[in-house]
């Protein structure tokens, strides 16, 4: 075990896979000579050279399409899009091609690309740099979507995503690259499906993913220490497909559910989980599920307003207490 940072975990997965398989390449803006905006590809340019660590022009839809085309012939591109806000520009190729080509070719072609991109609100980056887009990606058939909440998952999910024959979108977070965590020194792989119980409890399930797992864990601590409520935290690192069985199993145990999400509520992770609960374990519920989401606005620049737009661990605590009539 070593304690490493989130970006180091991503870097390590790149390094190992590129060393193993000469067809694995990475590409993106400023990832090569500059080492990547978040250092996730630091040093790889020197090690693997410009043919395999590619500084792209600012042409998101273009280089994403190029990566998809290369993947038809067995290249395994890991595409970094500097921010999900810029991934909007690549959605044509991601959705119209990567997500559909295997299907519409009747299984003849595959598009084994990995697209990594950080989303989320950071610090005052303003309306055009604060998108949370996981809900958009997870709504598209033919695309796998995962979202790590710690360095271990960042490593294990990327390792599997590179080897998986489906296109995989990895939703990272701008604020999490310097987060530290334990990662096994021995090579390992994480499934691209399922969920993890990050904290076991019996009174309520708090569903989180990516950054909101941390709000849920913090909230669970406060609820246990100050309010005698024993919350379970389920980490939904796979957003598409979502872990229906895992969701149902936890709710059937605790009989209550809350979903914490950083995005606006509409057509979101929370609404999807509520639907799954409805479909799988409605009669297990002791109370209607609730969601804690962002306010439905573009993100303001002003710091105070920005904070007011995005949920916190405190908001999770408040929502749980309300649910328990406290």
């Amino acid at each position: 075990m070593s304690e490493i940072m989130f970006w180091e975990a991503i870097r390590r997965a790149h390094d190992e896979e590129m060393s193993r398989d000469p067809m694995v390449i990475c590409m993106g803006e400023d990832i090569g000579v500059a080492g990547g905006t978040y250092k996730a590809t630091n040093g790889l340019f020197d090690k693997f050279g410009p043919e395999r660590v590619i500084d792209t022009p600012i042409s998101e839809n273009g280089y994403t399409g190029l990566g998809i085309g290369a993947s038809y012939l067995g290249v395994r591109p890991i595409i970094e899009i500097m921010s999900v806000n810029f991934a909007w520009l690549a959605m044509d190729q991601m959705f119209n091609t990567a997500a559909k080509v295997h299907y519409m070719s009747g299984g003849q072609l595959k598009a084994p690309v990995v697209i990594r991109s950080p989303g989320g609100t950071a610090h005052q980056l303003g309306a055009q740099h604060s998108a949370r887009m996981e809900k958009v990606f997870m709504g598209i058939a033919g695309l796998r979507v995962v979202t790590p909440s710690n360095p271990r998952q960042a490593y294990g999910l990327l390792k599997s995503a590179i080897r998986c024959d489906d296109p995989v979108f990895i939703n990272e977070h701008e604020l999490m690259y310097n987060m530290k965590g334990e990662v096994d020194d021995k090579e390992f792989f994480m499934p691209l499906v399922g969920s993890e119980v990050a904290r076991s409890g019996k009174d309520i399930t708090l569903f989180g993913y990516n950054i909101s797992v941390h709000w849920c864990l913090q909230a669970a601590d406060i609820l246990a220490k100050q309010h005698g409520i024993d919350a379970e935290v389920v980490d939904l690192y796979a957003l598409s497909p979502l872990d229906r069985e895992g969701i149902a199993a936890s709710v059937s145990k605790t009989h209550r559910a809350l979903i914490a999400e950083e995005a606006e509520p509409a057509v979101g992770v929370g609404s999807e989980i509520m639907a799954i609960i409805n479909e799988t374990c409605f009669y297990e519920l002791d109370a209607p599920p609730v969601r804690v989401s962002a306010v439905n606005v573009p993100i303001p620049y002003n710091h105070t307003l920005e904070k007011a737009a995005i949920p916190t661990a405190q908001d999770v605590v408040k929502a749980v207490l309300k649910m328990f009539g406290k």
């Binding site: 620049y301 002003n302 307003l305």
Partner: peptide
């Protein structure tokens, strides 16, 4: 990020 700003503090530098 003040309300007297040209975009009332909602826009920012960019």
């Amino acid at each position: 990020a003040k309300v007297t700003g040209c975009c009332k503090g909602l826009g920012g530098s960019m």
